[in-house]
Design a protein around this nucleic acid. Structure first.
Lengths: 343, 343
DNA sequence: CGCTTCTCCCAAAGCGCTTTGGATTTTTGC
DNA sequence: GCAAAAATCCAAAGCGCTTTGGGAGAAGCG
């Protein structure tokens, strides 16, 4: 059933039927009701491609995932971000189209996306400190919102980020207040902007209490469980091990905990752990009381909000760029305690 | 730059340019080269909607994610499945469009997808034992491939599944051979077909050695870490606790391990653990030697293969349905050992 | 009552591509 | 050298929708 058939069946022109369905005022209420009823009855839905071609709007948002960084990208938080964004898209009648591309083809992918016109805008994931995609998208005039931000890019663009620096700085100070002095940071890949900012927060937190940073207490890599395990293990086995760890994700924190417990130590009593908790749905940080003391911010909410921002931008072209900086909560769980006495 | 402009620039008709670009034989090699060069130079890409409208092919595959089951669905394996499928799509020039829908709207979503014609086929995720989506899609005549299968549906349809029953049966026997008799199963939601089959395998494995099942040793829920932790904890605290656990996912197994270690027990020495390992990229089961003894099958490979099957079906309409049943490997790690003596 | 203004509807022109059916030129066969 | 076949190219007709620019007929105005 297409528009022509529906209009013939109703004895009306395609114009009238189209207008009735799309809520234009040039059609009487009586015929509108008739049209709506007929459309409902025959389960009519306009062909997306045809409509899109006629209106110029794709009604779809693109998410580009580079494959080589797929450990980092198709990662633990990604699914939840998408779930949040997808909720918003669904409510507004937008589709979400994902492109998995090899890393070197990424720039070309954005160009192609813009040219093929099958998306109205894109979300930029996992920005690096000086991300070339931002300039590219501005050049292509394709609306976009960055999840995170790119510190070194000085042009005006829309982004939504968590105050990673402040969050980790607070976590660091929290540990210092508990008497810890040897505090380790198990960070994500530091070419990612968020990881860099977290390190800044860590360094700032230490500096505020005149504690020197120690390269042996800082690790940075993809945020997997084994990475947390191995890093913490090595540090714990060294002389003068850390008494506290800050992990960049709950997955990493699980590895840290494993290393601690393997050595017959007890979390909180012997070694404290704080992590950044993205509130991943299938990896909740405990039910009532959190397991890990954590800086917490929902990546799902971030997905929802980024999508809203992008849709607003698409529907009001020329509107100014919007930035949002969310503060993470610091929630206290069972993984932290005062530094052990002999520390 | 669109086709008309490109053809005017070249002094050729749109027909010729279109044919040159799409490799039709009715154009001389000389002009083809000229056209290709010009297209390259001006970065021409055909408008996806227009092409799609003209050809009748959307060049896109749909993945529908019900929101209410999103804990189950936008879950730990989903991201990797998508990554695998997306690879295949990318190579074949297909897009992946995801729809997040509220649970009750799911049926309507498939209808709408079919009517709006913005996908050429869909992947069905997480089938239940008697999944109504299969009949619906057959009725709609929309090509599809099921990841998993729906045991109670007797019609012929394409699916790719892991031999969940055999895998868990082997795991169970493996534990029995090590002397274990009190073996617990921490399963996924048993309205999911895979979970049901895993239970069958577990029961069959026990039955083969004439071990009676014990309801206290069987739990089933969403596969989160806290679920594993809580289930294992309760069982371990009961009189005559299990000496071995079979966990339906590595995430659950992490929770089981935590419960074990919290009680001062040691995995393998005191309590054995086997899990189903989907080889999730950011949650590798150890680097060299696996941490957990596991039945292993790559969900990413499954994504790749499902996508291939679906594309083949779309490109050869009327081809017979294809079924693939993959055997999981049983890899031995450090989480299993002989049953403790007093067992 | 004659004129203008609404109201409601429609024919037709795109949107940018593919593809059918033909036209024109070149090559081939005898 | 000329008809037939092959090789190239093109105009135009869709694909299914939205939207522009009118055109009847009804209602409002003096």
């Amino acid at each position: 059933m297409n528009l022509r058939e529906l209009s013939e069946q109703l004895g009306l022109s395609q114009t009238t039927v189209s207008r009735a369905l799309n809520g234009y005022p040039e059609v009487s209420e009586a015929t509108r009701l008739k049209v709506l009823a007929a459309a409902e009855a025959s389960n009519y839905q306009p062909d997306a491609r045809a409509r899109s071609l006629a209106t110029g709007q794709a009604k779809a948002i693109g998410h580009v995932i580079p494959q080589s960084t797929s450990h980092e990208m198709v990662n633990v938080v990604f699914a939840d971000f998408i779930a949040g964004a997808g909720e918003t898209y669904g409510q507004s009648g937008y589709d979400l189209v994902m492109s998995m591309v090899s890393d070197d083809a990424e720039v070309q992918t954005y160009r192609t996306l813009a040219r093929k016109r099958n998306v109205d805008g894109v979300i930029v994931h996992a920005p690096t400190q000086d991300d070339p995609r931002i300039a590219l998208l501005q050049e292509l005039n394709l609306p976009f919102v960055v999840h995170g931000r790119s510190s070194a890019v000085r042009t005006d663009y829309s982004w939504l980020d968590v105050n990673n620096k402040r969050a980790i700085e607070r976590a660091t100070k929290f540990l210092i207040d508990l008497g810890h002095r040897r505090i380790a940071l198990i960070n994500g890949l530091e070419r990612m902007d968020f990881a860099l900012r977290r390190r800044e927060g860590y360094v700032a937190g230490l500096a505020a209490h005149e504690i020197a940073t120690n390269a042996a207490f800082m690790r940075s890599d993809e945020m997997t469980e084994p990475f947390g395990h191995e890093s913490a293990g090595q540090m714990l086995d060294a002389p003068a091990p850390p008494t506290a760890f800050i992990a960049s994700s709950i997955v990493v924190a699980m590895g840290v905990r494993r290393a601690i417990e393997e050595r017959g130590l007890k979390m909180s009593r012997d070694v404290s752990v704080i992590c950044f908790d993205d509130m991943i749905s299938y990896f909740p940080n405990g039910e009532g009381e959190p397991i890990f003391t954590a800086t917490r911010s929902s990546v799902r909410d971030a997905g929802r909000r980024c999508a809203e921002m992008l849709l607003a931008q698409i529907e009001n072209p020329g509107s100014p760029a919007v930035q949002e900086l969310w503060e993470a909560d610091l929630v206290v769980g069972t993984s932290t305690g005062p530094a052990p006495g002999d520390s």
